[in-house]
């Protein structure tokens, strides 16, 4: 089992507020791991630091043996980390297929001049992007909507489209920030099955944020729990459910949604 990602003693402060406090963990290749915690506990902030939106205040992020802390988000994506967002962030001016193949742009070798002149090297890459984009949509059951506007899709499919778009960048590591947020329990369950399907059919590792414990209990063999920016527990669903600090953290807050 090789380590894919290592978060080393990460601290992130916003002014006087410590959002993440000496957080460490590592992910091994091919696993599905959940990060859970109450509202405002620092989950999204950890993702934002891993993907380069924020620089760590202290600590570092090692991905495939390379220290990526402080790199730009696009550089990190190029190295193989893709993500989705807690609030859906699709490109409204592009259709469904185009949303997906924007994720292929980073591997484009042709320069703008070849693109403007429709030179063979560009035309080949363009049709390849469309083809693999369509294949991806098909494998996720979204191909019927290829030409539609993303905002015309029902909420659940928009979530899936965001995942498809992230997959288009061909990531080694996929970070999903509350993919089931705002879904009914049955929809959330279906989405979790969808995520399991992605794990099985693509060669990657998934790190998943959720704030309702029960949603991830079924599918995530390993769960990390944070509260107030600090890791309070880590283990399999059973261990987590019986952990005193976890119970305390979760009973201490009202579980919305």
């Amino acid at each position: 089992m090789t380590t894919l990602l290592e978060v080393k003693d990460l601290t992130k402060r916003f002014g006087g507020l410590t959002a993440v406090n000496h957080f460490s963990t590592h992910l091994v290749e091919g696993e599905l791991c959940a990060l859970i915690g109450p509202n405002g506990s620092g989950k999204t902030t950890i993702f934002n630091v891993i993907t380069g939106i924020y620089e760590p205040t202290e600590g570092s992020i090692i991905f495939q043996g390379e220290d990526i802390s402080g790199k730009r988000p696009d550089q990190i994506t190029k190295r193989g980390i893709a993500r989705t967002f807690q609030n859906i962030r699709l490109f409204k001016g592009l259709n469904v297929l185009e949303n997906v193949i924007v994720g292929k742009h980073l591997r484009l070798a042709s320069d703008p001049a070849s693109a403007i002149l429709h030179l063979p090297n560009y035309m080949k890459e363009e049709s390849e992007m469309r083809r693999t984009g369509m294949t991806l949509l098909e494998s996720l059951g979204l191909d019927r909507f290829a030409e539609d506007e993303p905002t015309s899709l029902p909420y659940g499919l928009q979530r899936k489209l965001e995942i498809a778009r992230a997959l288009a960048t061909e990531p080694r590591l996929l970070l999903l920030d509350e993919p089931a947020a705002g879904m009914s329990p049955s929809d959330a369950e279906e989405l979790m099955a969808f995520i399991q399907h992605i794990l099985d059919s693509f060669d990657l590792t998934i790190f998943l944020i959720e704030h309702q414990m029960r949603v991830v209990m079924g599918i995530c063999p390993r769960i990390i729990v944070i509260d107030h920016g600090e890791k309070i527990a880590e283990g399999n669903p059973e261990q987590i459910q019986n952990d005193d600090r976890v119970i305390e953290a979760y009973l201490g807050v009202v579980d919305h949604a």
């Binding site: 993907t51 939106i53 730009r72 988000p73 696009d74 994506t77 190029k78 893709a82 993500r83 967002f85 962030r89 699709l90 490109f91 409204k92 001016g93 592009l94 185009e98 193949i101 924007v102 994720g103 292929k104 742009h105 980073l106 484009l108 703008p112 693109a115 403007i116 560009y122 890459e125 363009e126 992007m129 778009r165 992230a166 288009a168 960048t169």
Partner: peptide, 24 residues
């Protein structure tokens, strides 16, 4: 072109565009 899709992505959502590997 693909570059056009990238700049439209930048217009619609810089954070998401950058997360998809577009050098803003």
């Amino acid at each position: 072109s693909s570059y056009g899709r990238a700049i439209s992505a930048v217009r619609d959502d810089e954070v998401a565009a950058e997360a998809l590997g577009v050098n803003l």
